[in-house]
């Protein structure tokens, strides 16, 4: 006999994912007379849609494991996209932001986007680590500020006429590939490196981590910086896919990312969670969005269901924590 405890933690989340997909398949035949999963194009759209906030979720997972939170993902995405795009305009761009920087090699806008994101993340981390301001407030401040700076940067104008070589990195399956590679890399880093071990340790018992000689402040700043850089990467991928950058991009993406992380089994109390779970959480959100559209159900009902799933996931987590506390 196999025991439930012997299964990987992701097994139950994956079962939920499969359950939801099958449910939509059944509902599809019943109400629309079509297959939900049988449509390859739809599956492609699902995975493309989720890839962008999925990249943010990989960073948010690490932040939440340290028992922190990052609300700034969507806004940092927008700011990074705006700044990156301003360095990615083609030589024939009309009214460019920087007429002297046109047709640059794509490595420059990519690096700029990552750097802007990393800088925002660094500020989040430094405020959290050095001032004792809760990460909820620090990153909420960044959410508002980064979005505002994104607007001011071009006085509200979108950035377009992006060079072909830059828009190529958002075309086809590239966003999915970027998400997948980022997820695999950080899954392995969390599992097998000192960085990962200390991330879990800080989230599990910050005082014990400090006594054990871990530089908790420096580590937290590193985690938030990585999360910021990943939001920046998401911004680069998104504006390259859209072939335009706008200050309103990625609104509410931070909440989708946090939802995916929580649904994926990462504990808001810190110390527990895995990127593999987050990837499944991202897919669950994607299937729900797509499924509701497929069934032609109003967008707001979809939000209600998402909200309930998130609350349910946190309730499960709380029960798990309470069980552990009573045993210890």
């Amino acid at each position: 006999m196999f025991k439930r405890e012997n299964l990987p933690a992701e097994a139950s989340i994956f079962a939920v994912f499969v359950g939801i997909a099958v449910l939509f398949e059944v509902l599809g035949w019943a109400f629309v007379g079509k297959s939900f999963l049988g449509n390859v194009q739809r599956l492609e759209i699902i995975i493309l849609q989720v890839s962008i906030f999925g990249i943010i979720a990989v960073g948010v997972t690490q932040v939440i494991i340290t028992s922190g939170i990052d609300l700034s993902g969507g806004a940092v995405l927008a700011l990074s996209a705006m700044v990156a795009a301003s360095f990615a305009q083609s030589v024939d761009a009309f009214a460019p932001i920087f007429p002297q920087f046109l047709g640059l090699p794509i490595i420059i806008p990519i690096a700029v986007g990552l750097a802007v994101g990393a800088a925002c993340g660094w500020i989040n981390g430094a405020i959290t680590a050095y001032t004792g301001i809760p990460p909820f407030i620090a990153t909420l401040g960044m959410l508002v500020t980064a979005r505002a700076v994104a607007v001011i940067y071009t006085k509200g104008q979108p950035v377009y006429s992006l060079s072909d070589s830059f828009t190529a990195i958002g075309s086809g399956a590239w966003p999915v590939l970027v998400f997948f590679v980022v997820a695999v890399i950080f899954h392995l880093i969390l599992k097998h490196t000192v960085y990962g071990k200390h991330t879990y340790a800080i989230g599990s018992n910050e005082k014990a981590a400090r006594v054990a000689g871990i530089n908790v402040r420096r580590h937290k700043i590193m985690v938030y910086t990585i999360a910021g850089a990943l939001s920046g990467l998401a911004g680069v991928v998104m504006c390259s896919r859209a072939t335009i950058a706008q200050s309103g991009m990625g609104t509410m993406y931070e909440l989708d990312a946090i939802s995916a992380v929580v649904i994926g089994g990462t504990s808001l109390f810190g110390g527990r969670g895995r990127i593999s779970g987050t990837v499944i959480g991202v897919c669950i959100l994607g299937v729900i969005t797509s499924g509701f559209t497929f069934l032609r159900i109003d967008f707001y009902y979809q939000e209600i269901v998402k909200g309930m799933i998130i609350v349910g996931a946190v309730m499960l987590d709380q029960r798990r924590q309470a069980k552990q506390r009573s045993r210890a």
Binding site: K197, Y200, A201, G203, A209, A212, I214, G271, R272, Q324
Partner: peptide, 13 residues
């Protein structure tokens, strides 16, 4: 650290 296993706790830091 409650969420880490025995070796991780022994060798933390």
């Amino acid at each position: 650290c409650n969420d880490l296993d025995v070796p991780s706790n022994l060798f933390l830091g």
